[in-house]
Nucleic acid binder design. Structure first.
Lengths: 142, 142
DNA sequence: CAGCATCCCGCTCGATACTG
DNA sequence: CAGTATCGAGCGGGATGCTG
C-alpha cells in the first residue's frame, strides 16, 4: 500500500494545515484530512466515541443502550472501524456468557477532545444557524 | 417549528458541552451538536467551506473547478444548504451571462476555524491511524 | 451476551438533458 | 454561466433469524 500525504496539486500558497484534499477513493493520492472527516462524518462513530468518553469502559450491550436508535449491525460495524483505526480497544473475556469491553485509546481520547471542541462551537453558534434557517423559510414563503 | 435544545433524557452527570444527542429526525427532540455534525459530515460542505476560506470570494464555476470530483448537482445542493444555515452569502449580479459570487459569512469563517483545528489534528495523528490499520491487516492475514 | 449472515427497502447521488 | 428537472443505479443501513 502506497500513500502520499499532502496536497496532490499544490497550487497557490497555503499557510496553514489546510490541504486541498480530494477523494481518497477515486484518486490514487491520499490526504489525511479526508480520512478523518470520513470518520467524523460517521454519525455512529461520533456517538460511540462520546459515550466512551463519558464512561471509560463499556460493554457491547451498554453501548447499544446508550446510543439510542443504533441497530446492532451498525454498532458492530462502527466498533470494528474504530478498533481498526486504533481509536478504541476491544477486550474479550473468555467466559460464558461472553463479555466484551470497549475502551478509548489515547488516540481516541485525543479525538474526543476535538469532538468536544466541536460540540462547544455547536452549542455556542446553533442559535445563529437556527435563526438563519427560519429567516430563509420566511423568505421563501413570500 | 418547535425545538427543544439540550438532552432529551438527562441521565447521569454531564460536566461539559457533550450532550447525549439522538437523531434529530426520528425523534421530536432537537440537539445542536447533531445538527452541526450533520453539516461537518457532509464532505462537500467541508470542501466548499475550505475553498472559500482560502479564496474570499468565488463564483460557481470556480468552486466547481476547485472542488475536484463534485457534480454540478451536488455543488448546487451544498451551496444552498450552506446559505440556508447562514454560513455563506450568495450574491447575484444581474447581467448576461449571469455571475454569482459566494463568500463565507462571519459564522462561516468561525466554522472554518474549527475545521482548521480538525485538519491540524488529522495531520498530526494520521500516521498513528495508518499504522493501526496496517497492523490490523497483518493480524488478519495470519 | 455478543455478535454474524442475509435479505431488501429507501434515499443519495451521478448522469443527462433543458432553461434564462 | 449558473443553474433546474428528471431518472435510475448503488449502497447504506434496518429487520430478521441463527450461532458459540
Amino acid at each position: 500500500m502506497k500513500v502520499t500525504i499532502g496536497n496532490p496539486k499544490p497550487e497557490g500558497t497555503q499557510e496553514n494545515a489546510i490541504h486541498h484534499f480530494s477523494d481518497n477513493r477515486t484518486t490514487n493520492h491520499y490526504c489525511p484530512v479526508t480520512d478523518v472527516i470520513d470518520r467524523i462524518s460517521d454519525k455512529w462513530s461520533v456517538h460511540a466515541i462520546i459515550m466512551l468518553g463519558r464512561n471509560e469502559k463499556l460493554r457491547f450491550g451498554e453501548l447499544k443502550k446508550g446510543i439510542q436508535g443504533i441497530s446492532q449491525r451498525m454498532l458492530t460495524v462502527t466498533l470494528k472501524h474504530l478498533e481498526q483505526d486504533g481509536l478504541l480497544t476491544r477486550t474479550v473475556f473468555p467466559q460464558i456468557p461472553p463479555k466484551v469491553e470497549y475502551q478509548l485509546t489515547e488516540l481516541g481520547r485525543s479525538l474526543l477532545g476535538q469532538l468536544i471542541q466541536l460540540s462547544e462551537w455547536a452549542s455556542e453558534n446553533m442559535n445563529h444557524i437556527l435563526r438563519a434557517r427560519e429567516e430563509h423559510i420566511l423568505k421563501s414563503d413570500r
